[in-house]
Write a protein that binds this DNA or RNA. Structure first.
Lengths: 142, 142
DNA sequence: CTGTATCCGTGGTGATACTG
DNA sequence: CAGTATCACCACGGATACAG
């Protein structure tokens, strides 16, 4: 997915899918919004940023130091996307030097919970996953 | 508060005195396995395939028809990845023509639940997300 | 301090053709 | 039927320099 980058062309607006209030599982793939958000959750930095902002609001460079390894460019892009999705708020204080405070919105906080469930699952099953991979690799190496 | 594996806090002891939930959240980024699986969840086809296999086991082309828009190549690749992670089982029947049955493993089924939570969150909040985007785009269009 | 602009490598994804 | 092989596109992400 990924949108709004000066380097790229204008992002395609997500069209409204059907009104399925059916089982959420069935909506994966049926509802564009689901796949769309999944890719946001799956991208490299978004959930790490959400995590750090979930602890407390932070300024730009504060956040940059908190999220290990993120570049300035990617932090900006990630924050813009999160802001666009309504997950993060951005408050500019036009001082010298400038000050910009980021925080999770209520919507952003609410995303916390299902994402936590997912990361819990990974943690609880990471051994099984890794051994499955090792087994597969050993099998295919032949 | 729930318990969590002690070795999750290794390396970056960001903040002590966390609950299990926040510890799990913090493990995003701290634990490579979490970021790794997130990208699997976030990729374009994996969860759609898991969804379809969650309904029932399927053969290759059956699955291909079930997952709208997926190419043969991507279905193969997606299935291989899922198989490697231990989420999907692959049973070959060497007949003519050949028959290959795919199904979710117990591990794959267990992933269902947190993923469902997440997709339900998206569905419940997709209106708010879309209006946030519309608002942002209108603001930035200037 | 908080960004933009520019360049570029890598990898995910798709189209098409071929194979056992 | 169930794949592989090959080619190509372009978005993601990183490095660096510049700007307000």
């Amino acid at each position: 997915m990924e949108m709004i980058d000066p380097d790229l062309q204008e992002g395609t607006g997500t069209s409204a899918g059907n009104t399925g209030v059916t089982a959420a599982i069935e909506a994966i793939g049926a509802c564009p919004a689901v796949t769309d958000m999944m890719s946001r959750v799956g991208d490299k930095w978004s959930m790490q940023v959400v995590t750090k902002l979930g602890e407390q609001p932070r300024r730009f460079n504060e956040l940059r130091r908190a999220v290990d390894g993120i570049s300035q460019r990617m932090l900006t892009r990630t924050l813009r996307n999160l802001e666009r999705d309504g997950l993060v708020s951005r408050k500019v204080t036009p001082s010298v030097p400038p000050r910009v405070d980021y925080a999770l919105t209520p919507l952003g906080h609410s995303l916390w919970e299902p994402v936590t469930m997912l990361s819990r699952w990974v943690i609880d099953n990471r051994i099984e996953i890794e051994s499955a991979r090792a087994e597969y690799d050993a099998r295919e190496q032949v």
